[in-house]
Amino acid sequence: MAQHEHQSHPEIVKRLRRIEGQVRSIAAMIESKRSCVDVAQQLAAATSALASAKDTFIRDHIDHCLVGAAGSDQRDQLSELKAITKFL
């Protein structure tokens, strides 16, 4: 498989590193018997951050790998795919 990097990849890696820190903090919160509401709030924040990173990664892939490789007859279908990914 060919290696490639998109312009967004370094920023996504930074986001993932921050999320990794969040998850470690959440584990520490649970170990220190913090309030369930506080833990749940942090879990929701980490989940949202991870979903955002995933969305950025997928949309970037569509924009740079699929659209660029598509023939003119497929570009309309890819535009529709891009549009619907906003609802994921």
Rank of each mutant, 00 (worst) to 15 (best):
M1Q: 01
A2V: 06
Q3Y: 08
H4Y: 14
H4N: 09
H4Q: 10
E5M: 11
E5S: 14
E5T: 13
H6F: 08
H6N: 07
H6L: 12
H6E: 07
Q7D: 06
S8Y: 12
S8D: 15
S8N: 13
H9R: 07
P10G: 12
P10R: 09
R15F: 14
R15I: 13
R15L: 14
R15D: 15
L16D: 12
R17H: 15
R17P: 11
R18K: 12
I19T: 13
Q22K: 08
V23T: 05
R24L: 12
R24E: 15
S25G: 14
I26H: 09
A27H: 06
A28K: 10
A28D: 14
M29Y: 10
M29F: 09
E31T: 11
S32G: 15
S32L: 15
K33T: 14
R34W: 14
R34L: 15
C36A: 07
V37M: 03
V37R: 03
V37Q: 04
D38Y: 11
V39C: 11
V39K: 10
A40G: 04
Q42C: 08
Q42Y: 08
L43K: 03
A44D: 11
A44M: 07
A44W: 05
A45C: 06
A45R: 07
A46M: 10
A46S: 12
T47R: 08
T47H: 10
A49Y: 10
L50N: 13
A51G: 03
A51C: 01
S52D: 14
S52G: 12
A53T: 08
A53F: 09
K54D: 05
T56Q: 06
F57N: 01
I58E: 10
I58T: 06
I58G: 03
R59T: 10
R59A: 10
I62M: 08
D63Y: 07
H64P: 07
L66V: 04
L66Q: 05
G68E: 12
G68H: 06
G68I: 03
G68L: 08
G68Q: 09
A69N: 07
A70Y: 13
G71I: 02
D73A: 09
R75A: 04
R75F: 04
R75H: 06
D76G: 03
Q77R: 01
L78S: 01
L78V: 02
L81N: 01
L81E: 03
I84R: 00
T85H: 00
K86A: 03
F87N: 00
